[in-house]
Amino acid sequence: MDILPQLIVSGLATGGVYALIALGFVLIYKATHIINFATGEFMMIGAYFCYTFMALAGVPVLPAFLLVMVCAAILGFMVERVILRHMLGQPVISIIMVTIGLSSILMGLAEIIWTSQFKNLPPMFPRAPLNLGVAVVRSNLAYGFIISMAAVGAFALIFKYAKAGVAMRATAGDQMAAFSMGINVKSMFSLAWALGGIAAALGGVIIGAIGGISPTLGAVGLKIFPVVILGGLDSIGGAVLGGLIIGVLENLAGGYLDPFFGGGVKEVAPFVFMVLVLLLKPYGLFGKEEIERL
């Protein structure tokens, strides 16, 4: 059997999940211009929430998902209120470092609460793999992809049509103008963090369901950077496209190049690709160049 279609299909499926996680980053960046390096740790915490509800408390799948979303929203909200609110107007370096510090705090807390032992989420999806004819997709991956795409679609609709979404977009466009139109900019920031938290946590649950969870799960979050550089920091559509491209690309690179390097290509390929993109287009493929003024 030719491995190419198989690699592409499972790459697309993984890419869909990356897209959802990247969305968690983009939602926050779009509204607040804060670069959240703790996105991966939001994911990891989300996965542990799910583990707690399902494996420890015995909550069924759907209510567990809802509970995870509520908890993740509260986490995002709290992080914004307690920490990031103090950083308004600080230099980019400081804001990046605050979120890096935050990721360290979350990682340590997770290990204290849930220990560093590797854990498996209880099965959530039907076991049978999906056979697409040209390729077979593991059920967790297939359902993960479907849920991710549904979630991304829902977020896009909220952003486009809901009143709060419109206000968020206005805030993203021009904070001062939005403020003068009576939009409560600060509550938009909170909302963005809550939504970003939900997206990342859902992504974390899916990644956890596929590969198990540990406090270092957040490392997967680093892959969102190639995704958002490719797709543009503030574009939902770009996040989806970037996610799918990176997912396929890393799978192809891993599938064909691993024998030559003795493994690990999958982890490094997105970054190599990203460097090439940055060399050609310093603001990413779809990013807007910032016009500077004197």
Binding site: S104, L106, M107, G108, L109, I112, P215
Partner: peptide
Amino acid sequence: PLQTVIFG
């Protein structure tokens, strides 16, 4: 883990 938290 405590080190990690304090560090952050």
